[in-house]
Every structure is written in C-alpha cells, then in structure tokens.
Amino acid sequence: MNFTNFGKYLLLLKAVFRKPEKFKIYLKAIFQQMDFVGVGSLGLIAIISTFIGAVMTLQIAFQLVSDFIPKTIIGSVTRDSSILELSPTITAIVLAGKIGSAISSEIGTMRVSEQIDALEIMGINSPGYLILPKLIAGITMVPVLVIFAMVLSITGGYLGGTLSGAVTPAEYIQGITTDFNPYTIVVALVKAFVFGFIITTVPAYEGFYVKGGALEVAQASTRAVVVSCISILACDYIVTQLLL
C-alpha cells in the first residue's frame, strides 16, 4: 500500500465513522457480523489452537534434554508462548484468510454490480453502512477468539504432553501456574484489538475501491489477505516493542 492508497484508506475510515442514519439498522448488522466473525470461526480456531499447543509442548520437551532443567519449564514456556505470540498472531492470520477474503469479496461484488452507487444515490453513507458493523465486530470478537485460543492452546499442550509421556500432569500444571504474569494477557488483548481492526478495514478498503469485474474482485480479495497478513506481522512487532 503506497502513500496515495494509504491516504484513500484514511479518508475511507473518516467516512466510516460518520454519524449513522438509523442506529437500529446498524445494530442489527453489527450482531450479524459478530455472529459471522466470532461464532462462525470458533470451530476453526479451536482445532488450530489445540493442535498448535500440543505440537509446541512436544517440541519444547524435545529441546530440553538436560537433567538440570526441571520439566515444569515446559508448561511455563507453552503458557507464555501461547499467550504472548501464538494465540493472537495465528488467530489473526487465520481470520485474515477466512474473514478478510469474505469481506473483500462481498464489498467488491457490491461495487462492481453498482449496489454501492445505488446506496449513495439514496443518501446512505455506504462506507459506514457496509464497513462500520464489520469493524465493530472485528475489534470485539477477535479478542474473544484470542482468549478462546489461549485456553485451548494451553489445554492442547497438556493433552499432547501428558499423552505422549513428555511431561506428567502435575509437572505441566505446576509449570503453567508458576510465576504467571497477568500483564501478558493485557499485551495479547492489545494485539488482538489491533489485529481485529486490520482484519476488517484493510479488506474493506480493497473491496470498496475495486474496479472491473469478477477477476478484479478475486484479485482484490487475494491482495487483501496478503496485505492484512503483512500488516498483522508488522503491528505484532510494533506492539511487542512498545509494551514489552
């Protein structure tokens, strides 16, 4: 995204936050988007988080070959890695592919079929009507999904570690409960909020300004996922640098 496109992106965001024409219509759309972003992604996030936690625990156990390192450290490393990095970032990247492509395709199809032009002719603030509910759903539901992913990742680590014999249940539980710093959850939720903003606004921008037909909509959808993923990784570094 160059400076010209970034300027258009900011102007689009400015239009998104204009006062709604009828808040009841927006409220209904917000709940629909929350169901789509949150409830619709629970199954996928659950499967990915559980297996990532299990695999990470096994890899940590494989690296700890010294008898001088207590096995309780396996639970501690799994906990901190899941909370600070894996749960927010992996969840965001998965949602960027699932949610971002859907948002870009939906808005892009409305643009090329002139439905957005019809909304503007009727005096409706099309950026606010189409994007604001998605944005609110993103910044509210992505943190919820990240918390869900944290719990399942740590649970997956417990299952993977104990079933494989890499760590005993007592050692793992002692590891995840020892020296826990609640601030790590705050950092993770800040990341989730920022990622939720990116996942909804970047694809919306790509779809809103698409020109052409079905091919261009597909290209915009692909571009939205790529730009969203790169933005997520860049913001992940920035937030980590600022807060830790």
Rank of each mutant, 00 (worst) to 15 (best):
V210I: 04
G43T: 10
V142Q: 02
K24C: 13
T50D: 00
A166E: 15
V167M: 04
I199V: 14
G165N: 09
F62M: 08
T109C: 05
F36A: 09
P70C: 03
I25C: 03
E106P: 00
M150L: 00
S49T: 08
I69V: 13
T50K: 05
I136H: 01
P143M: 11
K19N: 01
V39P: 15
L145K: 01
V39Q: 05
L95K: 00
F31M: 14
L10H: 00
A102D: 14
S49R: 08
Y205G: 08
V227W: 10
K19P: 00
S104L: 12
A118I: 04
V239C: 10
I73H: 03
G123M: 13
S105G: 11
D179P: 03
I74N: 01
V225M: 14
V112G: 07
I238T: 13
G128A: 06
L86G: 05
K24Y: 14
S66R: 15
L44R: 08
D117M: 04
C235V: 04
I176M: 11
T78E: 13
A192D: 10
V112E: 04
A96Q: 04
A214R: 09
A92M: 07
C235F: 12
G196C: 00
A96C: 06
I93M: 01
L86E: 07
K71H: 06
V65A: 13
I83R: 06
S104G: 15
V225Q: 12
L84M: 09
A204N: 05
I45G: 02
S101L: 12
G161N: 08
L84W: 02
L243Q: 12
G207Y: 06
I83P: 14
V210Y: 01
I136P: 05
R18M: 06
T201L: 10
V142P: 06
L244D: 03
S41D: 07
A166T: 10
V16A: 11
V144G: 01
G196H: 00
I73A: 11
V210S: 00
M56D: 10
E171G: 11
D67Y: 13
M34T: 12
Q63Y: 06
M141P: 01
L95D: 03
I131H: 01
S105W: 02
Q32C: 04
I30Q: 02
T109D: 01
V202Y: 04
M122V: 06
I173S: 11
I107R: 14
V16I: 12
T177A: 05
I60D: 03
N125I: 12
M34R: 12
K211L: 02
A234V: 15
I198P: 05
E120G: 09
I232S: 12
A15F: 08
L58Y: 01
V55Q: 09
F31R: 14
S49F: 04
Y158T: 10
K71Q: 13
Y26S: 14
I107Q: 08
Y209N: 11
I93E: 03
K28Y: 10
F208D: 06
K71I: 07
L84C: 00
Q32Y: 13
I173Y: 10
S221W: 03
L119P: 13
L243D: 06
V210G: 02
A192H: 07
T222K: 10
D67A: 14
S101V: 14
E171M: 11
K28M: 07
I232P: 14
I147Y: 09
S66A: 09
L132I: 09
F31S: 10
S104N: 13
Y158S: 09
